[in-house]
Amino acid sequence: MELTGWRGSLYHYMDWALKLAYLNILWLVGIIIGIGIAGFFPSTAAMFSVIRKWTQEEEDIKVFAHFKNEYKKEFLQSNKYGYSWAVLGVIIYVDLQFFRGIPTIWALVISLFFFILGAIYIVSLLYAFPVYAQFQLTIKQYFKNCLLIVLSNPLFSVLMVLGFYFPYYLMTKVPGLIPFFGGSLISLVLVIISNRMFETLEKNNKKYIEEQEIK
């Protein structure tokens, strides 16, 4: 018998909470198996893949089997991808700190440039794994698409920042939630927002094609 009313809503949210907690534990186990440095990115890629399936109304997937398969399949590629982001972040940070230490006007201008570049980098990073889970591209194409999305969709970029911040803020206020929702809840919010953005981009692209055909 299907529950309705407040009981149905309660069951729905409890079901999602249990699924997210289970997925978060798998994510942590995947990180541990890879001894952290080699496990974080494939585990994160697998987690985003599961959440993408859920948001596509494929809630009956075998979570453990899908997570395990994605973890193994994406192990090398996701590490290359993730550490490419990490290296780029270190370069931007080091350059920013270097020029901030030089007391000249031109150094201040360059520091401002790297500060803006760093802000764009951070927002692009929020799209990194939603885009990775959604498309099959080269690493260069992933970077290019993340950058283009940030620059061309400022509203969604603000939503992505807020979508990361509020769950993160909740975790800092209730640390006991971290082992159960620290990664999965943030990932769910980011995937929901990015999915809406992908749908908007697809509609705009279809509309543009139709207008060109009319012309």
Rank of each mutant, 00 (worst) to 15 (best):
V161R: 01
V161T: 02
V161Q: 01
G163C: 04
G163T: 04
G163A: 04
G163D: 03
G163I: 02
F164Y: 03
F164H: 01
F164W: 04
F164C: 02
Y165A: 15
F166Y: 14
F166S: 11
F166W: 13
F166T: 13
P167S: 07
P167G: 02
Y168L: 14
Y169A: 12
M171C: 09
M171F: 10
M171V: 09
M171K: 04
T172E: 13
T172L: 13
T172D: 11
K173S: 14
V174F: 09
V174N: 06
V174P: 03
V174I: 13
V174Q: 05
P175T: 05
P175M: 09
P175K: 04
G176K: 05
G176F: 08
G176S: 11
I178M: 01
I178K: 00
I178W: 01
P179S: 02
F180A: 03
F180G: 00
F180H: 02
F180M: 03
F180K: 00
F181I: 04
G182L: 08
G182H: 03
G183Q: 01
G183P: 04
S184Y: 07
S184N: 09
S184F: 11
L185F: 15
L185E: 10
I186M: 14
I186H: 08
S187G: 14
V189K: 14
V189I: 08
L190S: 00
V191D: 03
V191I: 10
V191K: 12
V191T: 07
I192F: 03
I192V: 15
I192K: 12
I192H: 01
N195R: 15
R196P: 01
M197P: 11
M197D: 06
M197Y: 07
M197E: 08
M197F: 08
M197G: 11
F198W: 09
F198M: 10
F198N: 14
E199D: 12
T200G: 06
T200C: 06
T200M: 15
T200Q: 10
L201Y: 00
L201R: 01
L201M: 04
E202L: 08
E202K: 11
E202S: 12
K203S: 11
N204L: 10
N204W: 09
N205C: 04
K206L: 15
K206H: 10
K206A: 13
K207C: 09
K207L: 14
Y208Q: 14
Y208S: 13
